Structure formats: C-alpha cells, structure tokens
Amino acid sequence: MKQFSEFDINIKIKLSALWGSVMSCYIYCDYFQLYVPGKLEDMINLVTKFGAGDQNVLLGLSSILLVTSLMICLSVLLPATINRIINIVVGLIMTLFLGFLAYKVGWYFYKMYAIVEAILTFYIAWLAWNWPKESNA
C-alpha cells in the first residue's frame, strides 16, 4: 500500500497559519455577536462592555485585532530568536485574556470561540517555546 507523501512544515509557516485561524475565529465570533439582542443598539449608542465607546476604548479593543493581524506576517518575517519570544509572550497573554472571556461571557457561541481561540494561542506559545534547534552536524 502506498503512503501519502508528507514533508515538514517550517515552524514560521505553522505559527502564521495558527494566527490566521485565530484571526478568522475573532472575525466570525464578532459577526455572530451581531445577532445577540441589543448588540446593534449598543453599537449605535457607542456602548461597549468596557463602558462608553469613546476613542480610547475603541483603540484598546481594536489593538487586540491589530496584534493578531500583525502576528500572521511577523511569524514569517521576523528572525527566529525575536519571533520565538514574541510568539511566546503574545500567545500566553492572549490565552489568559481569552480564558478570562470564556469564563466571563454568557452566550455559548462566544464561550466556544473563546475556548478554541485560547487553545490555538496556547498551542502557538507551546510551539514557539519548543522551536526546533539546528543541529551542528
């Protein structure tokens, strides 16, 4: 029986793909959140879970998506040493934040996304922590 062909995927590509998955989850979760009763009214009235939707609050909230968006390309473009550190730090911070959200929010779809995102960001940090070393042979 013939075996399927496999090849090792560079860790930078793995990390970038995982950040892309996290970003997709964020976007779809935000989309489905629009169906939560009162959400659109809150948006129209500039109300967030963190208070009034002024420029400072919106800047803070949007920075979460900005960091994730940038991690998709930075995971490929940065040198290994810096890349490893940033993926560990950002991955762990996001895991803690998402774990808090999964505990705090009430809607099941939101909990599901937060748990999946937390698993993905923890896996990102784990992969970066275990970054392969080159052999000197």
Rank of each mutant, 00 (worst) to 15 (best):
F7Q: 14
F7L: 13
F7C: 07
N10V: 07
I11W: 10
K14V: 05
A17Q: 06
L18H: 02
W19V: 05
G20E: 01
M23Q: 10
S24R: 08
S24G: 12
Y28I: 15
Y28M: 15
Y28G: 05
Y28C: 11
C29D: 15
Q33D: 13
P37I: 03
P37A: 05
P37H: 06
L40T: 14
E41L: 11
E41I: 01
D42E: 12
D42N: 15
M43V: 10
N45E: 12
N45Q: 08
N45T: 07
L46I: 06
T48G: 01
T48V: 01
A52F: 13
L58F: 10
L58W: 04
L59D: 14
G60K: 03
L65R: 05
S69M: 13
L70D: 04
P79H: 14
P79V: 11
A80P: 02
T81V: 13
I88T: 07
V90I: 12
G91H: 06
L92F: 07
M94R: 02
T95G: 03
L96A: 15
L98E: 01
A102V: 06
A102Y: 03
Y103C: 02
K104Y: 13
K104F: 10
K104H: 12
K104T: 14
W107Q: 15
Y110W: 10
A114R: 00
I115E: 00
I115L: 07
E117D: 11
I119Y: 00
T121P: 03
F122W: 03
A125H: 04
A125N: 02
L127V: 06
W129R: 06
N130W: 01
S135A: 12
N136F: 09
N136D: 13
A137V: 13
